[in-house]
């Protein structure tokens, strides 16, 4: 069953068509990777799915529901969480506070009950904190809880950002270059974490340049070039696809 069904998506910026008639499906419970040369439209596609941009035409069905053109916060509420290519943690907040923000859509306290500090808000706060601790434990970063997020090592920041997205308890997780800036050991750890997340039943769609990561963990791979989809298949077939080798993987790497 497809949890995400993208059909005939188009988006252009002025004269540049960044995404051209792109359509694909993501099977529930799988890991799907989106690869392609720089400027192929991967991040644009991510921004369209997460609501940062709205498409010129086409539909995005999440579950059975069309979500194209919705605002980012509405899409997050529907169950799509994301990370960013350039880490966007909240500065001056501890790692656990960052993850607690991820619980936003699963909690309610508003301005009035917050100002009056009603007893209901205390219970909710401790639920938010406990759930965030569980997530940090799951990712193996409990010891970082009280450190200021932006003072952490780069690789740790990536994991905190992953934790923040997981705290949303998404059905679909969008990871924008989760291994960017990580060394080989960290990349391998990230790959393990992503598979662990998939094993929780969360569908993962990721953009990534690190081919070892992509080919090792993905169930399916889509290749974009100049805004168009040129391949959509299992990793082994992608590695053998002549067109993909020509535009992206390169003869020597293949």
């Amino acid at each position: 069953m497809a949890i995400l069904d993208v059909r005939d998506l188009n988006k252009s910026f002025g004269g540049l068509q960044a995404v051209k008639d792109v359509g694909f499906r993501v099977t529930a419970g799988s890991i799907k990777a989106l690869i392609g040369p720089n400027g192929a439209g991967k991040t644009t596609l991510f921004n369209l799915i997460s609501g940062v941009l709205s498409p010129d035409s086409g539909t995005i069905l999440f579950g059975e529901m069309p979500v194209q053109g919705m605002k980012p916060h509405q899409i997050a509420e529907k169950g799509i969480a994301r990370t960013f290519q350039h880490i966007r943690l909240f500065p001056k907040m501890t790692a656990i506070e960052n993850i607690m923000i991820g619980r936003h859509t699963h909690s309610r306290a508003g301005f009035i009950s917050g100002m009056l500090s009603l007893p209901g808000t205390w219970k909710e706060e401790s639920r938010i904190r406990n759930r965030s601790r569980e997530i940090m434990e799951f990712l193996g970063i409990s010891s970082l809880a009280e450190s200021e997020s932006t003072s952490l090592a780069y690789g740790q920041q990536r994991i905190v950002e992953l934790g923040r997205a997981l705290a949303c308890e998404p059905k679909l997780l969008l990871l924008d270059e989760p291994a960017a800036g990580l060394n080989m050991k960290e990349t391998a750890e990230m790959a393990d974490l992503i598979t662990k997340v998939r094993d929780l039943g969360i569908t993962v769609l990721l953009v990534e340049h690190d081919m070892s990561l992509v080919m090792n963990i993905s169930d399916e791979v889509i290749v974009l070039s100049y805004g168009e989809k040129i391949a959509d298949d299992v990793p082994l077939a992608i590695q053998k696809n002549a067109e993909v080798i020509r535009v992206y993987l390169g003869e020597a790497d293949a």
Binding site: S50, V52, K71, P72, H73, A76, E77, A81, R82, F84, R88, L89, F90, P91, K92, M93, E97, M100, I101, G102, H104, T105, S107, A109, G110, F111, S113, G114, M115, L116, S117, T121, E124, E125, I128, R164, C168
Partner: peptide
Amino acid sequence: NLVHSRVGRALRSIHGAEDAANAMGI
């Protein structure tokens, strides 16, 4: 009270990185 509540945390996150706050459903 507000500063130390869920809303206060959300407000600080907007100050820090508005796009990320938005992506978290705020």
